[in-house]
């Protein structure tokens, strides 16, 4: 009953036979060993599993691996290029946008899409943009600042 899929993750194409019910997040974590994408809930509320799939931020706990067949995926592991942190990663570090770090990969991937769509967001727009991502440590204060840091830095480029 397994199905063959081919998925390009962080620029590398992988081919596997998977159970139809295998979730994309478990495919990434358990098959590809990309454990930076986290599972924080069963109901698509927390956003810890947010990745970019075909240029869209998706919560990959609600995507089946077979649905990702043929798609292009970017995970947190693929964001820094040649050892150079992405401005959003830099922003989270500079502004102390994380504590336990568990929600962070999802937050960063969500911020990536947010800033692609709205390069100069207001604080309120950032807060609304994080509607689907939960953090229990920071009270979001420094996450908003981290994304503003990134927005400014990306605008300069």
């Amino acid at each position: 009953m397994n199905r063959a899929i081919s998925v390009t993750v962080n620029g590398k194409t992988h081919k596997h036979e998977v159970e139809p019910r295998l979730l994309l997040v478990h495919y990434l974590r358990d098959v590809l060993n990309l454990t930076g994408t986290h599972v924080g809930c069963d109901t698509s509320q927390c956003g810890a599993c947010t990745i970019i799939m075909n240029d869209m931020a998706v919560k990959c706990c609600t995507v089946l691996a077979v649905q990702a067949n043929g798609s292009k995926i970017l995970t947190i592991e693929g964001l820094a290029k040649d050892g150079q942190l992405h401005p959003i990663q830099e922003g989270f570090w500079e502004e102390h946008g994380l504590q336990c770090g568990f929600c962070t990969p999802g937050m960063i991937m969500q911020a990536l899409q947010m800033l692609q769509r709205n390069p100069k967001p207001t604080d309120a727009e950032i807060r609304r943009g994080l509607e689907g991502n939960l953090c229990r440590c920071t009270g979001y204060h420094n996450i908003v600042k981290a994304i503003q840091y990134a927005a400014k830095k990306m605008a300069r480029k």
Partner: peptide, 17 residues
Amino acid sequence: KRREDPRFITGKGIYTD
């Protein structure tokens, strides 16, 4: 700045799972 952050922001933290 925190020393632990580079591993977390690059997805390289190692949690139990």
